[in-house]
Write a protein that binds this DNA or RNA. Structure first.
Lengths: 111, 111
DNA sequence: AATCGTTATATTTGTACGAACATAACGCAA
DNA sequence: TTGCGTTATGTTCGTACAAATATAACGATT
């Protein structure tokens, strides 16, 4: 019985995905780097894909999840809003709880 | 707060997927129809894809999940083994429990 | 005004995956 | 022995999605 159980969770609104694992790791990278391009590079994602993901998240969310500025000192940047942080936190706690729950389930049922 | 949380689970063995939602619906269709080609058609899947999925499942599982016969009355067929049934049952109960758990989680945390 | 690093966006190129098609083998039934 | 419906497998073709490339706009700093 070396069977393992895995899961992925995501948050939807109006039948469209708002937040999944990939978007969350991107948002966390933005928080750490203060820049969308640096965040994308740090997680091995193309800038274009990162930008379109963030664009989709901000369109779907009730409030902005990131804010960005163009030009100026350092060329500009992007930061995670407090609302974005709360979303990321909620996602991660629920995700960890889900993993723990599933481990309990698989140990309960023997196959 | 019209945010919904969704999930997909799957069973792995040795870092390879053994069973996910698609494979489980295919296995259930085999149980109902007694034939791989009929099962594939009933769920709108090509025979080749269905066959390769079932092949992968049987290679990875500890014991055979389906058995098949070629030729004879009706041309042959495929059936779900008792072990296959137990795997399907385990997957579905854990999956339902996971959904319920996540609904509780999202109602607990307000975002 | 020239430079720099960034956001923002369009366009082209590549590729992985499924769809579609083709065919062999099999064993019962007529 | 011919036909049938199935399992089993290979091969070709499309297409959606990611990767790569290109370019404009922006604003502080020098």
């Amino acid at each position: 019985m070396e069977y393992k159980i895995k899961s992925r969770i995501w948050i939807e609104t109006e039948n469209h995905i708002l937040l999944g694992e990939g978007r969350v790791t991107l948002l966390k990278a933005i928080e750490e780097t203060g820049s969308l391009s640096k965040a994308a590079k740090s997680i091995g994602m193309s800038y274009k894909k990162a930008w379109s993901l963030i664009d989709a998240v901000n369109r779907r969310a009730e409030k902005p999840v990131t804010t960005s500025s163009i030009g100026g000192k350092g060329g500009g940047g992007a930061i995670l809003t407090p609302y974005g942080k709360s979303l990321v936190d909620a996602f991660e706690t629920i995700n960890k709880n889900c993993w723990k729950f599933l481990d309990e389930q698989i140990s309960k049922i023997s196959i």
